[in-house]
Computed example of a mutant assay.
Amino acid sequence: MKLTAAACLAGILLLAGCAGTGTPSSSSSSPSPSSPPTAGGTGAAASRAAPIYPSGQLAPIASSEARSQSVVTLAPPADMWDRIRRGFKMPDLDSDLVRDREQWYASRPDYIQRMTERSNKYIFHIVEELERRNMPTELALLPYIESAFNPQAVSSARAAGMW
């Protein structure tokens, strides 16, 4: 059965809204994109310090200088689902077809779990490319609807692959 675009989007929205990693994220504990994490603690002075990038010849620094300089931490996002939700750009749909697909996915948590586990190899890279191209991150969820993230999927029309 070929799903319509509205049904696909309904499933995508359900997956993005209901799925999680099991660890709730807290907006108060994560840094905002405009203020990178710092190494000097969590006080007001440490959060205002801008990162320092070396220029010219590198020379050893004293330990007192090292404590006063901030370091930008390059850590992956703690919650990929939160990252995907922040990049939503498509308008929400509200129709009977959308509600039907939401109910279908909501009644199959084991299926959602299998798809989510299968997506672990791919979702980070897909989101990276969507963000790089300034595209809606809802598109990262399309393989959930099209193939359940099965790279060997073949449709009745003989279309093959996740997409």
Rank of each mutant, 00 (worst) to 15 (best):
S27L: 09
S55T: 09
G22F: 04
P51N: 11
G40W: 02
R114G: 06
Q57S: 04
Y144K: 02
N134T: 14
D92R: 12
S147D: 00
S34N: 13
R48H: 02
S25A: 12
D96H: 08
T38S: 12
L74S: 12
I84A: 10
T21K: 13
W104M: 06
R99A: 15
C8P: 00
M1P: 06
V127W: 12
H125L: 14
P24S: 07
G17C: 00
R108I: 15
A159W: 00
L74G: 03
Y53C: 11
P91K: 05
E131H: 04
T21D: 15
N150A: 08
Q57N: 03
P151T: 06
Y122P: 03
S35W: 05
A153N: 02
W163G: 12
L15E: 08
S147M: 03
A148W: 04
P24Q: 08
S28F: 07
E129P: 02
L3Q: 11
P31N: 08
S32K: 12
M80P: 05
N150R: 02
M1D: 00
G40H: 06
T116H: 15
P54C: 09
A140G: 01
S55F: 08
A46T: 03
A5R: 09
F149A: 07
A6R: 05
R48Y: 00
I61W: 12
A75P: 07
R118N: 12
T73I: 02
A148H: 04
Y122N: 06
D100V: 13
G87V: 01
L139W: 09
H125K: 14
G56V: 00
L130E: 15
S28A: 10
A6I: 01
I112Y: 04
T4M: 10
W81A: 11
G43Y: 08
P36L: 14
G43V: 07
V154C: 13
R85H: 04
D100F: 13
E128F: 10
A59I: 15
P91R: 07
C8K: 05
N120V: 13
P151F: 09
T42P: 04
A153P: 07
G87R: 00
S28E: 03
